[in-house]
Design a protein around this nucleic acid. Structure first.
Length: 883
RNA sequence: GCGGGCGUGGCGGAACUGGUAGACGCGCCAGACUCAAAAUCUGGUUCUGGAAACAGAGUGUCGGUUCGAUUCCGACCGCCCGCACCA
């Protein structure tokens, strides 16, 4: 059937998103469609949140994907009759604003707010269901004032502490560097060799909650397993022992008598061959006093930086200190103490005993420095007389060997035996060894020596010490005038800002010049959205009525830190009376990245996709530069990045193809948790579908002019179509609830295909039963499409003559009786290989199914007259004949 | 280094709790419409052999469990992400 023109000969006008999308956005805005009523109207509440963006100034395709997902969820739950909270704000403090200000001479605030304006406009053009009346930026004084209140409440609750920690220090720019700003051991801007420096810093005592944060992970069943596992590993609980090793008298530096180590494997104590301490361990400093060579080595270790990844991937090196320790179970056995660059100061005691046979790193170290490596744990089933460790360690459990009184025990028994014996030995008035539970998790250092962040509301007074800023004096505002051109901390060298009177004694005092980590800002914004303009951090009864967030969506890169900090913050806010729950996010979803092909020209320089022309010849793709016509090499598909120029600007897409096509495309094909590759063909395909649906439903409308009957069952074609319609309504809803957007979209394609065919049937024989089925299908398709393509759906809804918005319409009611099938198609296998299929009544008796299967020509031929060895019948599923 | 993930046609992917591998989309091929093209519509499309019926192979590699494995187990290979001051 021809479907491109109307019966009266007029072409159906193409759908024009450039015209219709702004129109519907205006209608939603005017009708305040997505603004939540102030009063609780009794509807079930649902809180959808996407991680708020950093206002870089331009929307990224990753944002488009993230917010499209959230919006589908939000629109779906609205259609389910719920009151949906779907807010948006800006994670607006942070380094890029300062960097931009330094580069251009402007002010971080101006740069940030201008970016927010630009990005809000871009976001609004996506047609999201956001309630903009709740918008805020974390750099708004109204927001950070509340954050300072929270800081002080945490302070009074004993959740804040001040202690020393190490930072990367740039001696030229006089600034602390982030790990990503340290490139090959040098500062990114100055190029100076980076030093490790100790600073006194503010910390939140997240370790107080280590055990609770760990055990509560079990309750987070709306989170991806991989995120839960990553959090568990990050907290890193281990059961081990603290063991104190006595220094030999002749080697001990003055005033020192012992070395305390933490180990999770006390059972391997007889396999110890050396002790390793971190470069800044006190014993290392003492040993280096008269040892310039060791001093130089310690210096070298200090220059590596603070990044764990760097520390652990670099060449493992050590140097003997000349100090020796005595083995606890053999006074004649002494072991050398090394300074080693792979021992982390901040974990355990900053010292370990090396057991080369049980740890690959220790073994590599022992082989390098020619130290002993005796096997002490043997896997079950090996022979003790021949088992040895050569260049591969064995870290598993097993049977103890070469271990004196532990020989023959299991690792677990040996652990207990050592714990018991060392617990019974007293040195310096304390047991030599005690059991200790350790966590890898460290306290959260929140101090930043930067201007563009939330000031820590503390005053330092020579008389009174640390004085919290009184609540009446909050917020501690950032000074408007700032000189970022000088090296160092701009707040610290501001001429007046830090000089204040002590609120306690009135004498001259100094403000804290540290500002807070931007992770603090993002650790409670989800709670603030529930009462964004309140004069307290939260309005507890309102916050408690909305929280936890029902569905949180964001990048997997935040799977550990941001989520863990938010979980801590929620507990701390519970303790200080701002909330009455512990877990902020009931449902969590981590989306994949958006990737794109990379291109390089004949000079090996990166080329942006917009400058590349691609042609297909004989199935192969060739690329040339649009301007120069020179050849381009098509490279691998990678995460969009500035350096590789393979990013796509969503604004171009939104302007050319429209928001609906962009939303549809980023959600089709790839499962949302996986990476999606942006392709020109993909967005064009989405665009075609927009046009196809518009055309199809316009034609359908013409077919619907006439009488409709409710007696759809009278007509075979109508009934078949109705079944598909109801099946789609049901499964699209289920797929959205499970966040399987790609599968929902596949279902919608199938319904569209079915409707094309059925429209032809209606055109040929337009009886009233068919018209009724088509009318129902048209409504269902439009509503089911509306979470994905809201503008198009509104346009169709209006074209159909509906009197309200599709955004205010309810999800179709599924007629379950239409979903029950009377017969099933069952594949028949012979020896696990499909040889045919049979159609049988649903829930038919196994014996009749078996008989039916065996009578198939194909099966009979394979049997060759013999009886089958076995026939497996899985009801309604499969038959397998074993020959 | 440690931790986490991923691997299925030409491409993106689907396959619920171990039960028809390749839904749906893109691309490609053929046909219809057209003077022609675009757009649109219809049909086909895992690979090999065959006109077809059909047969064989097939979910990164090797091995195991099972009547039956993309799915479970073991070993390996490749790619990607996080590692505490980027957000």
């Amino acid at each position: 059937m021809k479907t491109t023109s109307r019966p009266d000969g007029d072409e159906i006008a193409r759908y024009n998103p450039r015209e219709m999308e702004p129109h519907w956005q205006k209608v939603w805005d005017e009708q305040q469609t997505f603004v939540l009523p102030q009063e609780d109207d009794g509807r079930e509440k649902f809180y959808v949140l996407e991680m708020f963006p950093y206002p870089s100034g331009r929307l990224h395709v990753g944002h488009v994907r993230n917010y499209s997902m959230g919006d589908v969820v939000a629109r779906y739950h609205r259609a389910r009759g719920k009151a949906v909270l779907h807010p948006m704000g800006w994670d607006a403090f942070g380094l890029p604003a300062e960097n931009a200000a330094m580069k251009t001479g402007g002010h971080p605030r101006d740069w940030t707010y201008a970016n927010i304006e630009a990005m809000r406009t871009q976001l609004q053009s996506m047609g999201l269901t956001l309630d903009w009346s709740r918008e805020f930026a974390t750099c708004d004084p109204e927001y950070y004032a509340q954050q300072q209140k929270l800081f002080l409440d945490f302070y009074f609750a004993g959740l804040v502490t001040r202690k020393k920690s190490k930072v990367n220090w740039d001696p030229v720019d006089l600034t602390v560097l982030a790990n990503e700003q340290v490139i090959d051991g040098r500062g990114w801007r100055s190029g100076a060799v980076v030093e490790t420096k100790e600073l006194t810093q503010w910390f939140f005592k997240i370790t107080d909650y280590a055990e609770d944060l760990l055990t509560a992970i079990d309750t987070l069943d709306g989170w991806p397993d991989k995120v839960r596992l990553m959090q568990r590993n990050w907290i890193g609980k281990s059961e081990g022992m603290l063991i104190r090793w006595q220094l030999t008298e002749e080697s001990a530096p003055e005033g020192m008598t012992e070395l305390e180590v933490y180990t999770t494997r006390p059972d391997t104590i007889f396999g110890a061959s050396f002790m390793a301490i971190a470069a800044d361990h006190p014993l290392a400093a003492a040993a280096a006093k008269d040892n310039p060579e060791l001093q130089a080595f310690i210096e070298k270790c200090r220059r590596v930086g603070t990044s764990a990844a760097t520390l652990e991937t670099m060449e493992k090196e050590g140097m003997p200190t000349g100090i020796h320790v005595k083995h606890p179970f053999d006074p004649d056995w002494s072991l050398p103490v090394y300074v080693a660059n792979f021992v982390l100061t901040e974990y355990g005691t900053g010292a370990i005993f090396g057991c080369p046979s049980g740890d690959q790193r220790d073994l590599d170290f022992a082989l390098k420095y020619d130290l002993a490596h005796v096997a002490v744990v043997m896997p079950e089933g090996e022979d003790a007389t021949t088992f040895a460790i050569k260049d591969e360690s064995y870290a598993g459990d097993g049977v103890m060997i070469n271990s004196s009184f532990l020989d023959g025990m299991s690792s677990e028994d040996a652990f207990n035996e050592v714990a018991e014996r060392l617990g019974a030995i007293e040195i310096n008035g304390r047991p030599q060894g005690v059991r200790q539970t350790n966590y890898r998790l460290r306290d959260w250092g929140i101090s930043r020596q930067r201007y563009w962040g939330c000031p820590v509301p503390i005053i330092h007074c020579d008389n009174c010490g640390e004085v919290p800023v009184p609540e009446a004096d909050l917020p501690v505002r950032l000074p408007d005038e700032v000189d970022l051109s000088r090296p160092g901390n701009a707040l610290d060298h501001h001429p007046t800002w830090k000089h204040v009177e002590c609120p306690n004694c009135g004498l001259a005092a100094l403000r804290e010049t540290d500002t807070m980590d931007t992770f603090v800002d993002s650790s409670w914004y989800f709670a603030r959205f529930t009462a964004p303009h309140a004069s307290t951090p939260t309005v507890p009864e309102v916050a408690n009525s909305w929280l936890p967030v029902d569905q949180y969506i964001g990048g997997v890169e935040h799977a550990i830190l941001h989520l863990l900090y938010s979980r801590f913050f929620t507990r701390a806010m519970h303790k200080t009376g701002h909330l009455n729950l512990d877990e902020p996010f009931k449902g969590m979803f981590t989306q994949g990245m958006v990737t794109h092909e990379t291109y390089k020209d004949d000079e090996d320089k990166w080329v942006a996709p917009t400058d590349v022309h691609i042609e297909v010849k004989d199935g192969a793709r060739f690329a040339t530069h649009i301007e120069t016509g020179r050849p381009i090499t098509i490279g691998s598909v990678e995460k969009m990045s500035k350096s590789k120029l393979n990013g796509i600007d969503p604004e171009d897409i939104l302007k050319s193809h429209g928001a609906d096509a962009a939303r549809w495309f980023v959600l089709s094909d790839s499962p949302p948790e996986r990476d999606v590759e942006w392709t020109a063909a993909g967005i064009e395909g989405a665009n075609r579908f927009v046009q196809r649906v518009w055309r199809l439903l316009n034609e359908a409308k013409l077919l619907l002019e006439g009488e409709c009957s409710e007696h759809v069952e009278m007509d075979e074609a109508a009934l078949t179509f109705r079944k598909i319609v109801h099946k789609t309504a049901k499964s699209v809803g289920e797929e959205i609830e499970g966040l399987k957007f790609n599968r929902a979209i596949a279902q919608l394609y199938e319904l569209t295909n079915a409707m094309s065919k059925f429209s032809a049937d209606v055109g040929e024989a337009p009886n009233s039963a068919r018209r009724a089925a088509l009318r129902e299908g048209v409504d269902v398709l439009t509503i089911c499409l509306s979470p994905f393509m809201p503008h198009l759906s509104e346009s169709i809804w209006a074209m159909l003559g509906k009197d309200k918005l599709v955004s205010d319409s309810l999800w179709p009611v599924v007629n379950e009786s239409l979903l029950v099938e009377q017969s099933v198609v069952i594949p028949v296998q012979v020896n696990g290989k499909r040889r045919g299929e049979i159609i049988v009544a649903k829930d038919a008796a196994n014996s009749s199914v078996e008989a039916e299967a065996l009578s198939l020509d194909n099966v009979a031929r394979m049997l060759d007259g013999k009886a089958p060895k076995k026939v497996i019948v899985v009801p309604n599923r499969i038959v397998n004949v074993v020959v």
